[in-house]
């Protein structure tokens, strides 16, 4: 049986990825962060191989506790999908903005989106080492691309994804020759998911659609695994 860990799986892309893998017969340890979202619990009734695990990626202790829980059920993981992210918040990360820059929120964003992803990989790595597939996937973003950056404010979120990309590069530099393979994915501008599972207005694509393409890219082996590239939901490649 194939097994995966997915962070930030209460809703949105994380939930869609979770359900997509369950449909394909995987066992999924799904990181739960939001107490008021019940979509994972509802899915448990339909999918016996779904295992929600409390997981706050900004806390090393929470990651260690989640890993201990996962270890009670499996001796290996085939794939980790780092998806959890802190987005949104006040407009306090730009120059000449209405609000002064909020440095503690910048740090929190880095702790979740960059360092959190790195620590999840670090702490769960022995389980991936024991698995066959050894695939480490990172949900990044188009705004991680310094080359293509179009924004002139709101760097609290954008900076964390460039930091995430370079962390993935450093991991790749060590682990690729040990048989690990990597994915960096830009999911597109996705609709937000409400607590009842309905979609908020705005945005381009449904998370289910992006998750379908993500799983195609995450699960397929490639001839050119040595290339660490950022690809999007259309299969296009992004400049870093």
């Amino acid at each position: 049986m194939r097994t995966a860990l997915i962070t930030g799986a209460d809703r949105g892309l994380g939930l869609s990825l979770t359900l997509g893998l369950l449909e394909q017969g995987w066992q999924v340890f799904a990181g739960r962060f939001l107490p008021d979202y019940r979509l994972l619990d509802e899915a448990c009734a339909r999918y016996p191989l779904l295992r929600p695990v409390p997981l706050d990626v900004s806390s090393r202790q929470s990651i260690l506790d989640a890993c201990a829980m996962v270890r009670q059920e499996t001796e290996y993981l085939d794939m980790i999908i780092s998806n959890a992210a802190y987005m949104g918040g006040p407009n306090s990360s730009g120059f000449r903005g209405e609000l002064p820059i909020d440095y503690s929120l910048l740090e929190y964003s880095f702790r979740v989106n960059s360092l959190g992803a790195l620590q999840v990989m670090e702490i769960f790595l022995p389980l991936v080492e024991a698995g066959e597939m050894k695939r480490l996937c990172f949900v990044s973003s188009e705004v991680s691309s310094v080359t293509m950056m179009h924004r002139d404010a709101g760097f609290r979120y954008t900076m964390t994804k460039t930091a995430l990309n370079v962390a993935a590069r450093i991991m790749y530099n060590q682990l690729f020759e040990k048989g690990y393979t990597f994915r960096l994915y830009q999911p597109g501008w996705m609709k937000r998911v409400n607590p009842d599972g309905s979609r908020a207005e705005g945005a381009d694509i449904d998370p289910d659609l992006s998750a379908g393409e993500a799983l195609r890219q995450f699960l397929e082996d490639r001839e050119d695994e040595q290339r660490l590239v950022l690809t999007d939901y259309l299969g296009h490649e992004w400049a870093y």
Binding site: V146, M149, V166
Partner: peptide, 19 residues
Amino acid sequence: PSMAKAALHNILQVIKNKL
């Protein structure tokens, strides 16, 4: 250091667009 400076590079592009 790599993650810190990578984050800085991203911020600089955003700031450059503004300034």
